[in-house]
Design a protein around this nucleic acid. Structure first.
Lengths: 245, 245
DNA sequence: AGTTTCTCTTGATTTAGGTCAAGCGTTGTT
DNA sequence: AACAACGCTTGACCTAAATCAAGAGAAACT
């Protein structure tokens, strides 16, 4: 159930400089020496299987995690309410930023498929950030980028139609894949319709219908979880568009 | 139009130690010397009149602001969409956290009533935070508290009824007033129904109707913008409650 | 391979809340 | 004081999306 125990890396398997995410990850912009120090605090990538939990709601907060491969979702269980998906994490993204400064994790994070993550024990990261202004800056940037992301999300959820939310969601994913060097037009949805629905505040049936409609209209192609964006501009103007027409 | 030019404080008018918000503000936990240094970077409280802008969307980001008195709202204008209220700021709360690490402000902040704010030029604050671990910790805490707030907001907006959103909103305000030493059961809504609607993702008519209904049911009393919470528990169970019954 | 269990799709029906519209009280203006 | 402008309430109507329901595929288990 628990992620497999982390060993210290022997040679250079986990070295950041060798990592394909190097250019998109937390240590971005660190000089050679700084990068070495950063490397030194990383706990060997933990491997997670589908539906395995990385973090459980209520657990003591100890570490941030950077996704190395695979994807995860964060869910928050609130009183009497069914679980709500609040986040999807893709490679290069940081899990746990919203828990900094708190004693306990306020959501669970679960793998959507086989995944590897790098663990960054927070106290060690903090110590290091004290010495490395670059790293400090990166941390702040990540935190406030996250804030903006959430606010964008709030705007989506508030007063936008199912079509607009869905379009924004797909474009958002596309963009995230693009910046990570994957195809922005053809990708795999690692989350279920139900997860998407929970995230977007829609019933899973609605998600299914909207995707179907988008496909009919020739804007996308969907086959199960394989998605192709066929008319980027149409999606874009739908997402931005005031009304929807 | 612009807030009145800030002068350096002469005597001790703006001194944090004398401020009633002292116990709830950013410099919380700073020792005497540290507090002095913090004080020194504050630009004299700016005074804002109702509907006057403190920050305009797109402006270069330079400072954080702490609300000293009054209240403000943040609005974000997105393409072709009507403005959306994303935030209300009460005394002791920090404006601008979501812009740290960005060059430009991504929303406007406007006074809802006469207000005073303390300006904290960010580069100076950052320098100071480098020397004061306590302050650094406070900053992180504020950032991640903000993240959690936004996530809670996302949960509200997604799949909750108008009644539940409204109940949560009122309880949230109540709590914020309480921690600031104001009455948690009887307070003034400085924002319009329309602002509340925008914030909660509801039509202003719905806001009005829900408040009316709550009053009928004896949970609250409303007269214009004066609000009294009469049945805290009922509101609470409505906000938390799975269905609504 | 066969069975069970998810996940997804599609249809029928219901409903919460949006939109449109009218009227009233307050506040601020000349 | 009179008027205009805004903010709020209330009613009637309508639509987007939720819910309920059934069935088809796909994946996981034995």
């Amino acid at each position: 159930m628990k992620p497999q125990p982390a060993e210290r890396p022997g040679a250079g398997v986990t070295r950041c400089e060798r990592c394909t995410l190097h250019a998109r990850c937390l240590p971005l912009g660190l000089e050679f020496d700084a990068l070495q120090s950063f490397d030194a605090i990383i706990r060997l990538p933990q491997s997670l299987k589908r539906s395995q939990a990385l973090v459980r709601q209520g657990e003591p907060f100890t570490s941030l995690y950077v996704v190395r491969s695979g994807s995860l979702k964060q869910t928050v269980a609130s009183a009497g309410q069914r679980d709500q998906v609040t986040h999807f994490y893709l490679p290069g993204e940081v899990v746990g930023l919203d828990t900094i400064g708190e004693a306990y994790c306020h959501g669970s994070v679960v793998a959507l498929e086989s995944a590897f993550v790098c663990e960054l024990p927070f106290t060690r990261l903090e110590d290091l950030a004290e010495r490395l202004p670059e790293l400090r800056g990166q941390l702040y940037r990540c935190l406030s980028r996250e804030l903006r992301r959430d606010q964008r999300m709030m705007c989506w959820l508030s007063g936008r139609t199912a079509d607009q939310r869905m379009a924004s969601f797909l474009l958002g994913l596309s963009e995230r894949f693009r910046t990570r060097g994957f195809s922005p037009l053809c990708f795999h949805l690692s989350m279920s319709r139900s997860d998407i629905g929970s995230y977007l505040g829609l019933a899973l049936e609605t998600v299914s219908r909207v995707l179907g409609r988008f496909q009919e209209q020739g804007m996308i192609g969907v086959a199960g979880r394989e998605l192709t964006i066929k008319d980027f501009d149409a999606l874009h103007s739908l997402a931005e568009g005031a009304g929807g027409a």
